[in-house]
Amino acid sequence: MWWTAKSSGVYAGSCEPIVAWDGTPQHLKDTLDTDRDGFAAVILCPSTIKPFEPQTFKDIMDVAQSHGTLVIFDEVKTGFRDALGGIQEVMGVTPDITTVSKAMGNGYPIAAVCGRHEVMDVMPTNPSAGTFSVEAIGLVAAIETLRELEAKNAPAHLRAMGQRLIDGFNQIAQSHGIAVEAFAEPIPQMPNLRFTDPNEKTANKVKDMFFREVIRRGLFMIDWHMHFINFSHQAGDIDQALEVCDYVLGQMKRTL
């Protein structure tokens, strides 16, 4: 589902009932107003909501509720990272349904659909099953992982390490005068880079050089996605990563 609209071979009509919105409360209202009874639910990935602040989330919830529409938060990516209760805890809202996965399994296959009773109570009347639906390894992993995340207050550590990476990187990039910037997307636990040269061709060239070279110098980064700070990252690991960035940006400055 998450990737469906981007895949070839998917019948365009199957996506038709889904109306895209831009993540702002106003556009949500305008969209829902086009068909007051026609929308079953609003689904959003909290990290894409702009501005990323409690008021926006409250406004979105209000708009949806006043239109009698359920709100689903896809916290697959964001869950457990900034707070154990996800972005919704940080923003002080409670959607009707939430999906979580990634961070709760520590790499093991697990996902969960959670929601308030009135909504979840229909599940037994809509039975579903799958080949691996009674597989337990992911559940065991999730229980252990959640215990660790809570006992060690992982979100605070992830935030601190992410901020260290972002601040350190920006200092280095500035000192070399290379047009690249690290930023929280939108939380420091999910840092990303943007290549800011106003000339798009130059920006792409800088980007290409950077990612090719850091891998050859012992830092595995990806050029098409935000990164994720892991609980195993310690200050020393972040600093080593910054050393590689410093070296590579220094080399680039000489060749650019």
């Binding site: 990634k102 520590n106 790499g107 992982t145 660790e148 595995f220 098409w224 892991n230 080593q240």
Partner: peptide, 19 residues
């Protein structure tokens, strides 16, 4: 060093970052 874990699909690394 890697900060790409927890999304496992960008490379064939499987579960690289585990406790």
């Amino acid at each position: 060093g890697s900060a790409a874990g927890a999304i496992n699909h960008q490379t064939r690394q499987g579960r690289t970052q585990r406790l």
